[in-house]
Structures are given as structure tokens and as C-alpha cells.
Design a protein around this nucleic acid. Sequence first.
DNA 1: TTTAATTTGCAACATTGTTGCAAATTTACG
DNA 2: CGTAAATTTGCAACAATGTTGCAAATTAAA
Lengths: 144, 144
Amino acid sequence: MGTKQQITERIGSILRESKLSVTETRTRILELFMKSNGALEHSDFEKLAGQSFDRVTVYRTLQTFLDKGIIHKIPTTDTSVRYALCKSECSEHHHHDHHIHFKCEECGNTICLDETDVPQIQLPKGYAAHNVEVVVSGVCKSCK
Amino acid sequence: MGTKQQITERIGSILRESKLSVTETRTRILELFMKSNGALEHSDFEKLAGQSFDRVTVYRTLQTFLDKGIIHKIPTTDTSVRYALCKSECSEHHHHDHHIHFKCEECGNTICLDETDVPQIQLPKGYAAHNVEVVVSGVCKSCK
DNA sequence: TTTAATTTGCAACATTGTTGCAAATTTACG
DNA sequence: CGTAAATTTGCAACAATGTTGCAAATTAAA
């Protein structure tokens, strides 16, 4: 994980690479992503950070991070939107988010399984696939 | 598809099998599901049916249909929730929804691909899978 | 350090989802 | 068929979530 110093350093370079100003809100939101071992949704930021974040700023920050390829969305069957950090090989124009997601039914956590391959899907004739999203639900390592 | 008469008949038996009263709202919502060749979200009902549905009734009807296994949800990366009709073999306690979903980037439609198998996913050690959701996005037959 | 560009926070608003309750509709049953 | 019981609906009121414009604050550039 690294020292607090190193994390701050890493966050700074992520933001600078994306040509974004290094601000307190952005730094703290990225810290929360790095500390959490799973996906976060909008309401988590207000909870995790107390009253200190303005709702609007969180919405705009997450949207900016999405645009720059710093985070990605994870599909859900409810109205919440979950976000997770992209790996370092991702950038605004080049994504390597080809991994599956796992949602634990016990702890509710959603994590990215980077080691697990996305399966090939044999579609019916006439369909062209651009992207495959896989979300497996079950019981995770820690909850077993 | 069948005549209007036959559809009404079919809807009646779906509702009776689930021990639900056959009401006008429920009948019309099921009709919309049957006529549409894809998944519907909440706002579609207000659009498709003009002003005639009360918002609250639509929410409650969809929740009831979910509870009874008449419809199922489809994962999305936005805040909307998409619903589609289950096949006839589904019921409150016994689901056969093991199919993948396809979202067309052109027409925006989401459909169930019943013929296509859900892939086996090889999870890391320590994870137990109960359910696998797959959503493929790309271009559908009609838009090609 | 000063200026220009970016970001933030507030207010106000729009949309989406929920709850309680009385009126209306549907079902069950004589 | 007609009545009583059960279910469903619609309204009002509210709660939660997401959006926009704009002035003040912060950050970057010189």
C-alpha cells in the first residue's frame, strides 16, 4: 500500500497526468478509493467523509474521473452507480478494463477480479459485440 | 404473438397463477412488456401510456411482478433499472433466468438472448459463485 | 506576486423513489 | 347476481438523488 506520503505522491501524479488541478477534494476522494478494497458509490463519499464534501462537488469529481479514465463504472441491478479505480494502464483514450466484477452477498462489497479472464461469448448471427460486462455474485474469500 | 384476445387471455392466466387480482393497470403493463421486444424501464411506462398511469402504481406493480417472478431486472451502469419478462418456466420460487443480455449501442434497446449460454467463470480460490450476470453491448441485428 | 484558468460551494430546481391512508376495484361467497 | 372482505389504486406529502448557473475561492502559469 505504501506510506501516506507515497500515496499522496501517487495521487498527485495521477491527477497531473490527466491534466487536472491537484485539489483537496480530488485528493481525498482518490484516497478513499485506494483505501477501500472495493467499489464505492456516491453515498459512500458523504458517509466516509462526514459532512465535509459538498454533494455537487462529489458528483462533478466522479464525472471528471470517469471522463479521464481514472475510474470506471460497475453495472448493478439497483439504482445506485458503483465506481472503482482503473488500473494504471488505463487512460482517457485507452482502456484496459477487461476484468470481471464480484459482488459479495454477505458483506455487500463489490471488487474487481483482475486476474480472471472475461469469457468469450458466442452471440447469435447478426450481433456484433464491443464490450462484455460480467458481474458474479456469491460469497467472497473473507466472508467464507 | 397472437390476437389481442389471446394476449389478454394469457395475461389473465399469468396473473391468476401468481394469485394476483386481474386489474387494468397490471394488464396494460404486461401488454407493454409483451409488445416491446426489449427491456423497459420505469420511465417508459409513463411515456408509453401517456398520463394514464399513476407513478406510484407503476412502482408498486413492477415490485409485485418482481416478487412473483413475472419479470426480472437487468444490470446497468446508470441509475435506471431495466426490467424484462421472465420466460414461462419462471415462478416465485423457481427461476430459469440463466440467459445473457444484449444492449444495442445504436437503438439503445436491451434484449434477452435466451439461446445463448451463460459462460462458466473460473473464480480465484476462496470465492463461491451463486449467480453470473452478463451484459454484452454492441450492435444488434436490426441496426446492422 | 499577480493574473488567468480552474474548481468549489451555495441556492434553487428537476427527477426519481417511498409511505400512509381513504376511495375504488376486484374477488369470494352466499 | 348482490353483498362483504380483501386487494389495489391514486393522491398528498415527503425523502432521496441528481443537475445547473453563478459568484467566491483555490490552483496553475507567468
